[in-house]
Design a protein around this nucleic acid. Structure first.
Length: 554
RNA sequence: GCGCUUGUAGCUCAGUUGGAUUAGAGCGCAGCCCUGCGGAGGCUGAGGCCGUGGGUUCGAGCCCCGCCAAGCGCGCCA
């Protein structure tokens, strides 16, 4: 069980006992909480529960705290429990108990940090889902990295997670893509064709046309235009999907399901959900279009779901898609990661989910804000319209997948971020990526040295770990499960890189102060090797959660 | 005009569901530490009215209201 939970249990028991003895009024259990004091001098954990209950009941918080502390029996993990003004309860862990945790970490192995917090609830997380009409750019990369990291953290936290990419293969964008590609194709043969006004003008479309010509020649020039556009377009679309998949794999992002928008029409689910909404009175005809009457649900305005020409809007098909997620596939929880430009879509989507009788709390949207690229001080401009885009692939090839992932993860999703290519590329100490990975290689090299010297530390006695640097390192390792819970609960993966840096820092500090492999004291050497091996596990776990490699050498 | 997000050290950002007379980290800046396991490291210091003005309470960077500034969005694009 997680340490914090264990302490919560101890505290809750004491509170219940105090209530039984009539020393405390009845309270709601959720009021009881254990926090981590920001000032370490106050102890490992603390509770402000006495302050809260004292206010509600009109009691003296110090007295309340003393009553509770008096009812906490000694335990193996707690050195002391004390009361501090104005009414805190502070918990300090026992040094020898901390030392023993090294064995627990080693025994848990790769599973260290995993929780049952999620209780196997099924979570579907959908991200990237870029139209297959062009290559991914940096902003997409951010969503991809956040999404894939959440998948790992939620899995570690005990959720059954499925990751999905939604392919918009049915809308207007696809038709425009088809016509753009056909125009480029014709141009390659010297035909005076024009890319549609709102078409895709990027140079990658020319490359795509050339690639298809290299494979199949001019055969589409000899077909009736409608047929040519459609056949050529489908080939192009397939290639685009392949390209996107490859780009994503470059930063370690894969999916369980590639979900086709078109399938929602083919299997009738779009029609089903529309008639459900119609029967429930959520749809209305206005100006020849069909509207979702969200104003009746407290929204600012209604939204079109079926255009006057009879075709569904993006919103319309997205309704069907989420009906599919919740009703057809029965996920307990659905998480969507969208770009900042979709932010206006959130509240109407929540409204429609409520209208379908689904608890909107089961639907979570993460908006990942924009990324601006810098090269040192210089701003790198992105303009999709002109086709002048910085692709994700270019960035990954320039700075590497590990650095790319780490940087994307280092900022909370809801604030815009600057991505400095120069900094990410630097293999020096200004780059936190290398700082963290360096800690891992140092650990690895110590273990290598021990192996070369034939030291078997299996019988190491961890009770020899008593000094400050050792205990600080152990305390930091014990934090990982809490970090995983925070990430899973808040859906904010940016806590991981910060934890990784903290862990690396305390390790480097330990390394400086505590000689590990030494002939002078073989017993201490073995104990410290156990600590180092445990550190390796925790560092590696953290790096893997972030989707980064765990180098043995650099 | 309305909505969402953001505003914390020179720069880039954390701040774990309001908590403890000193608000943290990295970089940058000023210094110190190499007869040892990887110096891609360790240590010390300077640097903040937490955008701004009110409010809520035992207690606010965090909650509420106003204002200022930036980004994004606002009925048949996705």
């Amino acid at each position: 069980m997680m340490l914090r939970q264990r302490l919560l249990e101890i505290l809750t028991q004491a509170v219940a006992e105090a209530q039984r003895l009539g020393k405390l009024p009845p309270v709601i259990p959720s009021d009881i909480s254990i926090e981590r004091p920001q000032n370490a001098q106050h102890g490992d954990y603390a509770s402000s529960f006495p302050l809260k209950v004292a206010r509600a009941a009109g009691l003296n918080p110090i007295k309340v705290a003393n009553e509770i502390v008096g009812l906490i029996a000694p335990t193996e993990e707690l050195d002391r429990v004390s009361v501090a003004p104005p009414g805190f309860i502070n918990f300090v862990l026992k040094d020898d108990w901390l030392a023993k945790q090294v064995e627990s970490v080693l025994a848990a192995g790769d599973a260290y940090g995993n929780l049952d917090f999620g209780q196997n609830r099924s979570v579907q997380i959908e991200f990237v889902s870029v139209n297959p009409t062009g290559p991914l750019h940096v902003g997409h990369g951010r969503g991809a990295v956040i999404g894939s990291t959440l998948v790992g953290a939620l899995s570690a936290a005990g959720c059954e997670v499925q990751k999905e990419y939604y392919i918009n293969d049915a809308g207007n964008q696809v038709k425009t893509f088809y016509r753009s590609l056909f125009a480029r194709y014709q141009q390659c043969f010297g035909i005076d064709a024009e890319v549609p006004v709102d078409g895709y003008v990027g140079s990658y479309m020319v490359d795509l046309a050339k690639e298809i010509i290299a494979e199949t020649g001019d055969k589409f020039l000899h077909l009736p235009e409608a047929e040519a556009v459609s056949q050529l377009g489908q080939i192009g679309l397939q290639k685009m999907r392949r390209l996107i998949k490859d780009d994503l794999e470059l930063i370690g992002v894969t999916f369980d399901v590639w979900f086709s928008e078109q399938s929602l029409f083919d299997n009738g689910q779009y029609q089903t959900v529309m008639s459900l909404l119609r029967q429930a009175g959520h749809l209305a005809e206005k100006e020849n279009a069909t509207w979702f009457v969200s104003t009746a649900l407290g929204e600012d305005k209604d939204n079109v779901v079926v255009r006057s020409d009879g075709s569904p809007t993006y919103f319309g098909t997205d309704i069907a898609y989420h009906y599919n997620k919740f009703i057809e596939r029965q996920f307990d929880e659905v998480i969507d990661i969208w770009g900042a430009d979709h932010q206006g879509h959130v509240s109407r989507m929540k409204a429609v989910i409520g209208a379908l009788g689904i608890n909107p709390d089961r639907f979570k949207v993460i908006i990942s804000q924009m990324v601006t690229l810098h090269r040192g001080k210089e701003l790198v401009r992105i303009s999709k319209r002109s086709g002048d885009i910085i692709t994700l692939r270019e960035v990954v090839e320039e700075v590497g997948a590990d650095a790319c992932r780490f940087f994307f993860l280092s900022r909370s999703a809801d604030s815009q971020m600057d991505f400095d290519l120069e900094l990410a590329k630097k293999q020096s100490m200004d780059n936190p990526v290398y700082y963290v990975q360096y800690a891992h290689t140092r650990v690895a090299s110590i273990l290598r040295l021990a192996a070369e010297n034939g030291i078997d530390y299996g019988d190491g006695d961890v009770s020899r770990l008593t000094t400050e640097p050792e205990l600080i390192l152990i305390r930091k390792m014990l934090l990982l499960p809490e970090i995983i819970e925070v990430v899973a609960r808040s859906l904010e993966p940016h806590h991981l890189p910060y934890y990784a840096q903290d862990l690396a820092t305390v390790f480097h500090s330990f390394y400086k102060q505590c000689r590990v492999v030494s002939q002078d004291d073989i017993a201490l050497t073995k104990a410290r090797l156990k600590l180092v091996a445990a550190t390796k596990l925790v560092l590696a776990k953290t790096l893997r959660l972030m989707g980064m490699t765990t180098p043995e050498k650099m």
